[in-house]
Design a protein around this nucleic acid. Structure first.
Lengths: 206, 206
DNA sequence: CCGAAGTTCTATCAAGTGATACTTTCACCG
DNA sequence: CGGTGAAAGTATCACTTGATAGAACTTCGG
């Protein structure tokens, strides 16, 4: 008895890349909500309107799907944080605002990061060495320069990254809690704007 | 074939409260690391050196165990944040330092919170209404007063709570990542001290 | 030392898990 | 056409899941 892919919708075989993309989209939601181990391939397939074995066809395994998901999330980060400022203070301000906007637009990345970063694992090591460290190194170099220039507030470099990401992302990672507790919508553009303004005020000197 | 509770250790039946406590301790670790759905009752029992059905004996269900876990975590929060300051600025500074210390000592609460707050659920609603809202209301009232007194930096009340918790907890919730990426130990007392100092500097005026 | 209550421990169930082998359907090229 | 390769779709496997039934064990009051 077929348990996925709502009957009707037969055909349109040409795709491949299309189904692959839908599976990644669906997996982003599931992994972010339930974590890797808590997500089932059947739930992912159902959400992608596909059949469960298609995951093993388009990817080698559930784990390989997870790696593909992370690769795509990181591409999205870079698109969001793309920066053509030349003056360093404008650059960091642009970065902070981009962080907040991205956390609002794609809370799934921060949710997945926290799931994975809670315990050492093969996946976490890969994530750090492949995706995080290069970005972290860039950020820290900039932060040190800013501090010396007196633009950044007095936050030690080894704390700056997680303080900033924490302050930028929790409101959006926990959006369902925030809506019920406070009654605001974190992804609302006015809220994002206020959040970004506040972040800039907190972390940079006037 | 018995799959838990390493053979030997028979007896010592009188306990009850003891096994119950061990199960809660074990569940805190498992739920924090793998989320509710990703945690198995067998893994919890194994960690508590008990048998899997003892969970259903001492608690009504896996879900009931989760509620018991949250009740205990919240008791621990209150113990950590216990506050006998009378002057309001000293009170909030004490609170901020307590937040950081607690996040370092018990990163499991913030990990569990993020797992649960990612999506609406029965458990999340219970958590908010039973445990979070009372504490949130107190915090916000204090924050508004501080802002009017010019002690708090310019952070809107509806953002203050999550910005502060995010900045206080991510470094510790993601401790395994931080150790591998940066090479510091977030729970190290000197780090906690520096983190707390930085938080006070960031969120309060001189 | 007996029996009753409380707890541990074993065995098992139905449902859900990721993965694989296999059949069927489609798109394209000769 | 016709047949070939790629993708969709089916059926099933071995294993894990949370839960329960019931036997075995420990404790304690009489």
């Amino acid at each position: 008895m077929g348990d996925d892919a709502t009957a009707k919708r037969r055909g349109s075989y040409k795709s491949s890349e299309l189904v692959r993309g839908r599976l990644i989209d669906a997996a982003i939601i599931e992994f972010a909500t339930h974590g890797f181990e808590g997500s089932s391939t059947r739930a992912i397939a159902r959400r992608a309107d596909a059949h469960q074995p298609q995951i093993n066809y388009h990817f080698e395994s559930k784990e390989a799907l997870w790696y593909a998901v992370m690769d795509r999330m990181m591409e999205e980060v870079d698109e969001h944080l793309d920066n053509d400022e030349t003056e360093i203070k404008a650059m960091i301000e642009h970065l902070i605002r981009g962080l907040v906007r991205f956390a609002a637009a794609r809370p799934e990345l921060n949710r997945m990061m926290i799931h994975e970063a809670s315990a050492p694992s093969q996946r976490l090591t890969w994530l750090i060495e492949t995706h995080i460290r290069p970005r972290y190194d860039l950020f820290i170099a900039g932060w040190i320069e800013l501090r010396e220039a007196g633009v950044a507030r007095d936050v030690p470099p080894e704390l700056a990254y997680h303080l900033m990401i924490g302050a930028a992302s929790l409101l959006h990672a926990n959006a369902p809690e925030v809506e019920q507790l406070i009654g605001i919508t974190p992804s609302d553009p006015a809220t994002v704007q206020a959040h970004a303004d506040t972040m800039v005020r907190l972390f940079l000197n006037d």
